[in-house]
Every structure is written in structure tokens, then in C-alpha cells.
Write a protein that binds this DNA or RNA. Structure first.
Lengths: 168, 168
DNA sequence: CTGAACTTTCAATAATTATTGAAAGTTCAG
DNA sequence: CTGAACTTTCAATAATTATTGAAAGTTCAG
């Protein structure tokens, strides 16, 4: 397999993976392209390499910047904007985790809180069963939330280090 | 908020969450419905409560069984099949993790392995940069894979216990 | 200031994914 | 065996989501 094929395959697979995780496929292909690029790329470079329109590149690149996975690089004396991806995969994973936690886990915990205060007689089986389930999910979520907060702040080496210590 | 509203909200939110994770919304609404149901439900119950067709219920319930999140319950002397969800949320999370690991992480690691053996001169900057990135992702994935394997086999209490020890 | 070189927006449209519901298949009580 | 009571399949269609590309907006060298 040569380098061009290899890059192609990587981009393709990264797109497949992302689409299984509810992330726009093109967005993650742009991400993959930038991850393995050895230079910063312009909008035109991305358009050409992925065969997508200018508008599409613009939208997806902006969303990637929203996720803190890509940043704009401005070269003095050049009107074009270039883009570069965060290459430290640990940081990539932590940024994604941070965003998803904020956007999804936090609202979920908030709702579960409200739901656990449902009206009605606690001795009623239906209500008891419901609040039990809700409370269990809440407990789990709060735990997960805490672990994630620590991870996000942690250094990669420290994290794996402390992990490996207990898991063997 | 009364119990009916609360259940509704839970089902709705569970569906929203799932769709952000690339999971069919209806499938996770069925899951939510079964999670908070105090009885096992038949196909007709699910059809009625979520206002969806019989075929739809059938397909989604079968996929939930594929994920080991729901099981068929057969009551002697009744032709109808009933469905029940796994209610231990730790097990739910571990089953999902197990499936996703198997379906997504494992193939990814396999591809990364192949990609790191790309042809060409290792002193070429482009190739060096590519294999470096690929190897970093691989290292990360293998680590994550190991942790997940241990978690999947772990007991909930043991897991949080050992976690809490190091994370404070 | 001006206009060339860019970026951004967004309505129209294409592509993808989910849903229906009728038909076919299966099971089992009688 | 039979047929009623169920489950399953799948082609047609509906709903959702992504993409295009032209028009509007912005920036900055000269």
C-alpha cells in the first residue's frame, strides 16, 4: 500500500467511524484530512481533495473549530486562510469528550434531577419503579461526569499511569 | 410534574440523546419505554404508546435484542411475546460499550495496523508524518481497548471503587 | 476608495435514513 | 390438519439530513 492509498483509506474509515457516532461524515473526513496532512490546508485544498463544494468546506471547518479540533492559521502576506488540526490524539479525544459532556451529559443530569422529583405517592409501585430507575441512571451519570471532568484536566501520561496501576 | 408527563419526557430525552450518538431515535425510545415500564410490554403496547407501526416495533426491538439490551419474555399460555429491558444501568452501559468496541474500535485498530506498514522511505517527511499520526492513534486506541475490556468484565462496585481511590 | 480575492450564508435540491403497511411466514390450540 | 393469532419481511414512501452553488458579505492591497 502506498502513501496515497493509505491516506485515502484513513480518511474513509474516519468518516465511517464518525457517522456511526452521529457526527457528520464529511466533517470528520475534513478532520481526517487535516490530521494526516503535513501542511496546513486552504479551503481550496480541501475542496479539491474531498471533492466537495466551497460552502460545504466552510460549514464543516467552522464546526470543527467549534469543537476545538481545528484552528485557523493566518499566514502574513497571504489573503487565504489555512487550517490545521490538533494532532495530539489525547487532546483530540479530550476535546470531543468535553464538548459531548457539556452538550449532552449535563442536560441529561439536569432532566433526571427534575424527573426524580415526580409528584405522587412514593408507595405507588409505578412511581417507585420509575424513580428507582431514574435515580440509578442519575447516579451512574454523575459518576461518569466526575471521571470525565478529571480526565479532561488530566495529562495523558498521568492518566494512563494511574490507570495501568489499578488495572493489572 | 406527574408520572405520565415524567415518563414522556424521559422517553423523549433518551431519544434525543441517542440520535446524537448515531443510534436510531425510535429504537432508543422503545428502549426508554421498556426501561421505565413496570411491566413487560407486548408489540401492541409499544405500538400504541409510541404511535409507531408494527413493522417498526418489530425491527427496533430485534435490534435492541442484538445489543443485549432487551430480551424476549414468553409467558406460558399466551401467544403474545413480551419484551423486557435490562434495568441495571451499569450493565446497559457495559453492553453498549462492548458492542461498540467490537463493531468499531476493533476494526479501526486493525486498519491502523495496516496503515502503519505503508510502503516508502521512512525518511520522507510526508510518510514520516503520516505514520507518526497513525501510530499515535493506534497507541491510544489499544490503550482504550484494554481499559474497556477490563471494565466490561468488571463489577460495578469494584470499578467505581478503584476509580474513586485514584481520582481524589 | 475600489475592486479583486477571498469567506459566508442560505434556499433549493440531492442523498440518506426511517417508517409504513400489506403480504408472506410461523406457530400452536383445538 | 387447519386457521386464527401472532411475527417478520420488504418495497414504496415519508422524513430527515447533507450538499450545492449562486448571491451577499468582508477584507485589504494598491
Amino acid at each position: 500500500m502506498n502513501i496515497t492509498e493509505a491516506k485515502q483509506k484513513f480518511i474513509e474509515q474516519w468518516g465511517v467511524l464518525a457517522s456511526q457516532w452521529g457526527i457528520n461524515r464529511t466533517m470528520s473526513q475534513v478532520h481526517a484530512l487535516l490530521l494526516i496532512a503535513d501542511k496546513n490546508l486552504s479551503t481550496d485544498d480541501i475542496m479539491e481533495q474531498l471533492s466537495i463544494s466551497r460552502g460545504n468546506v466552510n460549514m464543516n471547518v467552522r464546526e470543527l473549530m467549534d469543537w476545538n479540533l481545528v484552528r485557523k492559521v493566518i499566514t502574513p502576506g497571504d489573503r487565504k486562510e489555512y487550517f490545521a488540526a490538533e494532532k495530539d490524539i489525547w487532546k483530540v479525544a479530550m476535546n470531543i469528550m468535553e464538548q459531548r459532556k457539556k452538550r449532552e451529559l449535563d442536560p441529561m443530569v439536569k432532566l433526571l434531577d427534575e424527573l426524580s422529583r415526580v409528584e405522587g405517592d412514593k408507595r405507588n409501585t409505578e412511581i417507585k419503579s420509575f424513580t428507582d430507575t431514574v435515580n440509578n441512571i442519575k447516579k451512574f451519570s454523575v459518576h461518569a461526569d466526575k471521571i470525565m471532568s478529571v480526565m479532561i484536566k488530566a495529562e495523558e501520561n498521568w492518566f494512563w499511569g494511574s490507570f495501568i496501576k489499578i488495572f493489572k
